[in-house]
């Protein structure tokens, strides 16, 4: 079987696990989780500087030591202007044109604003960014994002931090069938089984944070997700059997001993 790599904006990766770097008990725990996840892409953010918090420089040093490709986000932005400006700041600080574009439209479920997302994507791609948009599972939104120049789509499985898994399988399956570009399930994954299912459905990768960082043992959970993603991808490539309504014996019935002996 030929090699199976993930290709995003012309760069190839052997891991299909993108991991967030927030919510860990310590920067060191985050690093240990990244290592256990065997991931090659990590997400991070930008926030107003508070030197009193103390560990900002340490965090940055550890991030660099992971050797992972950095995918900065525009988390928390609620307008095109905010997202574009934060993306520009990220590009300068992290020396990357990659941006996980988030434009939030609702404070309650952190649902992306589809209209602002398309507009911001168009603007940033025009400025040379490589945009990975955090979007809903809406088919038309994804079409518009592709038309804007996004080479990768990142629909949610469920709202950020909910851990509810793949809420709308019909819509997600439709996206998988309709787009041949990389599609990454981003957000809402709470268990390795859910990540595995996403990979079995043919999605190219999974991005998550809370499910690992908030596990009782984040490092062990990172390893568990890594294994689940490999298993799901292998299953997808192997080809799942079709589900059937009626039972069908797996052991041959011909030659069954004691057959009708009691009649």
């Amino acid at each position: 079987m030929k090699e199976d790599h993930l290709t995003l904006y012309g760069e190839t990766f052997s891991s299909r696990f993108l991991l967030g770097t927030a919510l860990y008990e310590s920067p060191q725990q985050m690093c240990d989780a990244v290592a256990a996840a065997r991931c090659e892409i990590i997400t991070l953010g930008l926030r107003r500087q508070n030197p009193a918090a103390g560990d900002g420089e340490r965090f940055w040093q550890l991030i660099q030591q992971t050797g992972c490709r950095l995918l900065p986000n525009t988390a928390g932005c609620k307008s095109v202007k905010e997202a574009v400006n934060l993306a520009q700041m990220s590009r300068e600080l992290f020396s990357t044109e990659w941006i996980k574009l988030e434009v939030i439209g609702d404070d309650y479920n952190l649902q992306p604003d589809p209209f602002a997302l398309v507009e911001a994507s168009r603007e940033l791609i025009g400025q040379g960014f490589k945009v990975l948009p955090y979007c809903t599972d809406d088919l038309i939104l994804c079409q518009r994002l592709r038309e804007a120049g996004c080479e990768v789509l990142m629909p949610w499985g469920a709202p950020i931090g909910t851990g509810r898994g793949l809420l709308n399988r019909y819509a997600l399956k439709t996206l998988r069938e309709r787009f041949d570009c990389p599609v990454i399930i981003d957000a809402g994954i709470g268990a390795p089984s859910q990540a595995c299912e996403a990979m079995e459905m043919g999605f190219d990768a999974v991005l998550l944070n809370t499910a690992v960082a908030k596990a009782q043992n984040p490092v062990l959970m990172a390893a568990s997700f890594a294994n689940a993603l490999v298993a799901g991808r292998q299953a997808y490539r192997a080809g799942l059997m079709q589900a059937r309504q009626t039972a069908s014996p797996s052991t041959p019935t011909i030659g069954q001993p004691f057959w009708h002996q009691n009649k």
């Binding site: 967030g20 770097t21 919510l23 991070l44 940055w60 944070n209």
Partner: peptide, 10 residues
């Protein structure tokens, strides 16, 4: 003036 620095993010 906003001055931002890297932080953990998802």
């Amino acid at each position: 003036v906003d001055v931002v620095t890297p932080v953990g993010g998802g």
